[in-house]
Design a protein around this nucleic acid. Structure first.
Lengths: 160, 160
DNA sequence: ATTAATCGGATATCTTGTGTCCGATATAAT
DNA sequence: ATTATATCGGACACAAGATATCCGATTAAT
């Protein structure tokens, strides 16, 4: 069970977008360059985010991706759902309904499925409770002035 | 991100083993037959459980697999760890350390990794909190007398 | 000692994730 | 208005992990 690297890539990319002024975006190539990631693959993942409504795409010269909503309204879960889909990691195939001793009264989920449901609900709850705004604020708080200057300069190049 | 079906298969298989008297086991073929599952593939998964110390294998005629510990000391998490490994679904590759604006003070995990750590800790906590004994007890409570008789007869065949 | 049953690891197939490329489209410059 | 350039979007290859099987090694029963 491995989560796609795309989640990590886009989470960091969206954190960068959240640090930008409202309405301002960056092309996928710049988002990839910011962490030295494969541009084409990053582009593919950003497409998934756009389809899911997390970011908006602007085509043509000077275009790129920008957040489709305020950063406080985008959770880490939203990013996972966009990249990985909403389906749960554990998928009950109802094997209890098969076999020599299978019964017939199966309206409720089996005990094993129930455990996984509870666990995955707790997992999603944590992921939903943190927004891009929270992350961006925390990152900003920890950023040194030197790095902040570096970032400003890099952004000027890219936004010019 | 998909969890292996082996987790579902072996969770149900272990639930069956937990219902047996202490020290008694069943061959992999019987565990598969109980839910009409592919015997060879079930065998492979049971091997993983044996390697992880969740079950013990007994070779030769009359052998099979039995729980290696009391059912109350085996959690759902132990089964996942055996089948899937202990590694977390989200794997931080420290992309923040790369790129034109990468800094140098990276002793602590980044904000994004922290969120995933918290979420996965909550997930594992739920899975660790439920033992095979809990599941077996709940299943037993819900089992009708008719099905219990079915099970008893099937077991007599298999244990004979 | 022989036979039969069972585990254990090596092997093959298939789905999913990883990664790239080129056409479609919109912007900016001329 | 036209052209050239930048950018997204989906179609297309490749690699990795999950799925599934088979046969040899080992052990108990006969």
């Amino acid at each position: 069970m491995k989560m796609s690297e795309g989640v990590e890539w886009t989470a960091h990319a969206c954190t960068l977008l959240a640090a930008l002024p409202h309405g301002v975006g960056l092309p996928a190539a710049a988002l990839a360059e910011f962490h030295y990631l494969a541009p084409a693959y990053m582009a593919k993942h950003m497409q998934a985010l756009a389809r899911a409504g997390v970011v908006e795409s602007v085509r043509g010269a000077g275009g790129g991706y920008r957040l489709a909503k305020p950063a406080k309204d985008i959770s880490v879960w939203d990013i996972i759902a966009a990249i990985e889909g909403e389906e749960a990691p554990f998928r009950c195939t109802e094997i209890r309904q098969k076999g020599p001793c299978a019964g017939t009264d199966f309206r409720k989920p089996c005990e094993i499925t129930s455990v996984f449901r509870r666990a995955e609900t707790a997992w999603r709850a944590e992921l939903k409770s943190v927004s891009l705004a929270d992350i961006a604020a925390e990152v900003g708080r920890k950023t040194t002035p030197a790095r902040r200057a570096q970032l400003t300069q890099w952004l000027q190049e890219k936004l010019a």
